[in-house]
Design a protein around this nucleic acid. Sequence first.
DNA 1: GATCAGTAGTTGAACTCTCAAGTACGCCGG
DNA 2: CCGGCGTACTTGAGAGTTCAACTACTGATC
Lengths: 151, 151
Amino acid sequence: MATARWLTEDEQQTWRAFVRMTHTVMGSLDRQLQRDAGLPHGYYVLLVKLSEAPDRSIRMTELAETLSWSQSRMSHAVDRLVKDGHVVRMPCPTDRRGSFAILTDAGFDTLQRAAPGHVDEVRRTMFDNLTPTEQRQLRRIAERIAGAAER
Amino acid sequence: MATARWLTEDEQQTWRAFVRMTHTVMGSLDRQLQRDAGLPHGYYVLLVKLSEAPDRSIRMTELAETLSWSQSRMSHAVDRLVKDGHVVRMPCPTDRRGSFAILTDAGFDTLQRAAPGHVDEVRRTMFDNLTPTEQRQLRRIAERIAGAAER
DNA sequence: GATCAGTAGTTGAACTCTCAAGTACGCCGG
DNA sequence: CCGGCGTACTTGAGAGTTCAACTACTGATC
């Protein structure tokens, strides 16, 4: 790569602002969810995915793929959620290697209690600071960048 | 908060794209730096800050404030960087409670070796996917959102 | 100069995430 | 029906982060 294509002053500023943005937004969110529901953001998303699935249950591997998590991470996370009573595991009847994670009623309750505060926090940190135009721009940019990484 | 202001479908999509973007970008960056320099992204930034400071040294508290880190996190991080020989601590002569973190030559070398790959990764995941217009838009949005959180 | 709230930093435990193995099962080709 | 390769997890150790003490010092007050 010889002498790398260095960042221009403007790119530098953009990059640092981007990093600050992600840390402030994700940090606020994590703290809010931890405080109000005792869950990190990732675990909240996990529960949301389960709540949206038929029978509130998803195979571990599929869940891991959906969230772009490693199987190991998923296994540890479900361990914790089982301990808390938010989730139960069920062996897969057709493939004895596999198992399902199933959202319990208690888990669903936690989700419902956490959701309003979560939405407020998302609004407060993001949408309240964006004009409709900026929101469209951000969506387009985010989809482009996230999409590019998926190849 | 009564019945919360729910997210519209469009906001929902924007939000999920945003989360995907931050995870893919920050994830790639962390993996790249971990692989090539044995450092998480935060530690890289820490070393960069030190390298930009007069005498390559900064008071612990000031460093923590600059990075929006807790003092505890800073203390643990510097522990690790000292073990690796990237940083040394020096007691503050005028305030015996305080101490400086100082970037060593070895730390500076690590930084210089890591920088080109890091810049490439930033380009690859971000700037290569943005038109100049989008880059301006992103900078403005990021500064706005990051700025709003600072009050 | 004794007191005492505040500041600077460290420490240890609990938690999450990653990475490398390990276990158990499914699915083949021979 | 039996190796052997791939899949679906699980496990354990190591590293980073947070949170709640805790130590040591400063600066202001009386």
